[in-house]
Amino acid sequence: MQLSDRITGLFLAGLGLAAAWGGSRLPAVPGQDVGPAAFPMLIGGGLILCGVMIAFGIGHSFEVPEEAEDERHSSAYGLRALLPPGLLLFYALAVDHLGFMLTAAFIVASAALALGAKPKLAVPLAIGAPIFVHAVFAKLLRVPLADGILPAFW
């Protein structure tokens, strides 16, 4: 996801414009002269300024060159980066139905396999990690983790 400074700068300027516009439409508060609009408009203005400066390459000389992305793979390979947020989304949607144990086991197993773990490592990890996390969070810290269809055995 390496983009040119022109694109990110203009995106930030656009975001700033949207923030300032959105902020300006907020209703005033009765009995107060300064309302909820002031701060977003200020930030929006700042973002527009910064975005335009970035787009024109001001301050670029200070930057340290980024390490190059692994170029040996096709562009579809870059989509693998979306797996971790995808797994988090899966957790948020599924945990109340499947329960913590199954959801966690699925997440650990798929992330491990994607990172190149052999089943010999991934399977014990997918069984052990959820039990450990459940022990720490649900038992020790009393965080209410969902039971779902496979409750913890203790």
Binding site: L88, A92, A104, I107, V108, A129, V133
Partner: peptide, 8 residues
Amino acid sequence: PVIILLCA
């Protein structure tokens, strides 16, 4: 993988 789980 364990980090992802801990994050969640």
